[in-house]
């Protein structure tokens, strides 16, 4: 496999347009953690004000709910949660200015179409590798909704988080394609 591409966040849609499904990417810069309850709050806020709160335009969402950090550490264990649960809200958020999302697992056709329409990308991180992924987090601060605990909106500073491009701006889908490709290849070898 080719060497990973470095992406500095926040990232422009022009840069995202150059990424292709399956590319290995290292992410540097700020992301905002948001999962189930956070998405309900973001959708409410968007509905009320017709724009994203907290300067989220142009930013990247990380579907994650970290463990509390142990004393002296910038982050506890942190890793992706299942993206599918956020699919209902994601097209709205992409239309409103979110440019990329990070999670795990297959997403809906509506999200794929919204990625094409808005020029956004979905990155996949490896689930179950949260001790490793936490080593790529340099710092974090709660931006909003601290009462949500692990579901609060947290600004997290990344230092090279390893991800794969799972849906690119042309709508290619790694979860669907890689599996079919691998199956075809291994059947050929039999």
């Amino acid at each position: 496999m080719s060497s990973p591409t470095r992406i500095d966040l926040p990232v422009s849609r022009e840069v995202l347009a150059g990424l292709r499904v399956g590319d290995e990417v290292r992410l540097y810069g700020p992301v905002f953690t948001a999962r189930d309850a956070t998405h309900a709050k973001l959708a409410e806020s968007l509905e009320r004000d017709d724009r994203l709160p907290f300067g989220l335009e142009g930013q990247t969402l990380f579907y994650a709910g970290p463990t509390p950090p142990a004393a002296g550490r910038p982050a506890g264990a942190v890793g992706p949660t299942t993206a599918k649960r956020m699919d209902g809200t994601t097209p709205l958020l992409l239309e409103a200015g979110i440019v990329a999302t990070i999670g795990k697992g297959l997403r809906s056709a509506e999200v794929r179409e919204a990625c094409v329409r808005t020029g956004s990308v979905y990155f996949a991180a490896v689930g179950g590798a949260a001790a490793l992924l936490a080593t790529f987090v340099a710092g974090s601060e709660v931006v909003a909704w601290p009462e949500l605990g692990t579901e609060a909106l947290v600004r997290m500073q990344l230092e090279g988080l390893p991800v794969f491009v799972a849906i690119d701006t042309q709508g290619a889908d790694l979860y669907a394609d890689a599996r079919a490709a691998w199956r075809a290849q291994s059947e050929g070898e039999r």
């Binding site: 709910g65 970290p66 463990t67 506890g76 264990a77 890793g79 179950g128 001790a131």
Partner: peptide
């Protein structure tokens, strides 16, 4: 480092 293997404990 005594860190959980996954954030979902």
């Amino acid at each position: 480092d005594s860190v959980p293997v996954c954030q979902d404990t």
